[in-house]
Nucleic acid binder design. Structure first.
Lengths: 152, 152
DNA sequence: TATTGTTATACTCTATAACTATA
DNA sequence: TATAGTTATAGAGTATAACAATA
């Protein structure tokens, strides 16, 4: 098999395996990937309106309502009225939410180490650079597609 | 950022971008990732029972019924009775199904080339090897998890 | 008039359980 | 008794459209 196809094949395999690993781990603490994605953004952005979250997640406002409903009822986030805009709602991490994010960051670092266990430091660096290049190409392709769409 | 975390971060980003790219492309020909996954397996295995497909996709029998229903009504696969086991159904690619798979294989090869455009041949080879190692580690982790489960 | 979030509705993927027809 | 596939039911993620409250 040609090396370029091998790269894509491995990436697709890793996609599936990573997804399974994470879904499994999250299931044990009552989270799903979509909800966790929202938690990460909230952790990154700090307290935010649902609109902001919808934009950050590139997802519909309705979708955010559902995710926040679920996360609120399981105690990871809380809603409070926006102080100056009475249309808006501010969503923030609860204590449980913050703890969970802290633990997940640690687990992410652990997984990151495990993934490259057995590779030397210089190999890891090369791998990171290779993946940077691939990610950049993919971003370009996405941009080009959006351009096509706009033109049509 | 440490290189190991950089590797994981890039992999996660690539996962998302690849998924978007493929979902978008598939949407234009009336397919979804789940249905396409089934088509790939069918292409690989040849005509198969739904049981076989359920096992190959690691998914419930009910799920396969739904996917085959959808693919049949859109003309990508057809069902016919199993010649010797009257309980079973054989699913096969239609002409459209075969054409689609042929085209998709070509597009996959094209995408594979684009992803590593700008990298030299030896870099691509190194990248492939690095990803081989990462995929192997992930497979190990999945196996270890299954072992834990069995033990608990 | 535009924006925020919700209700209403719908589609896809997924699962388990019960059931039918066959082995 | 076990297996292949279906019907029934349910939950999660996603989308669009209509609507109420507010800007």
């Amino acid at each position: 098999m040609a090396d370029d196809v091998r790269v894509l094949d491995r990436l697709l395999e890793i996609t599936v395996l990573l997804n399974k690993d994470m879904t499994h781990a999250l299931g044990e603490i009552g989270l799903t990937t979509a909800r966790t994605h929202l938690l990460w953004e909230l952790h990154r952005l700090g307290q935010s309106t649902q609109q902001t979250l919808a934009t950050a997640l590139a997802v519909s406002a309705r979708n955010v309502t559902g995710l926040v409903d679920a996360l609120e009822s399981t105690g990871f986030v809380s809603r409070r009225p926006h102080p100056s805009d009475r249309r808006a709602t501010l969503v923030g991490l609860t204590e449980l939410g913050v703890e969970t994010m802290t633990r997940m960051r640690r687990e992410r670092d652990q997984l990151a180490q495990q993934l490259v266990a057995g590779l030397g430091a210089s190999e890891v660096e090369r791998l990171a650079k290779g993946l940077d290049a691939v990610a950049a190409r993919l971003r370009d392709l996405a941009t080009a597609e959006r351009g096509d769409q706009a033109a049509s």
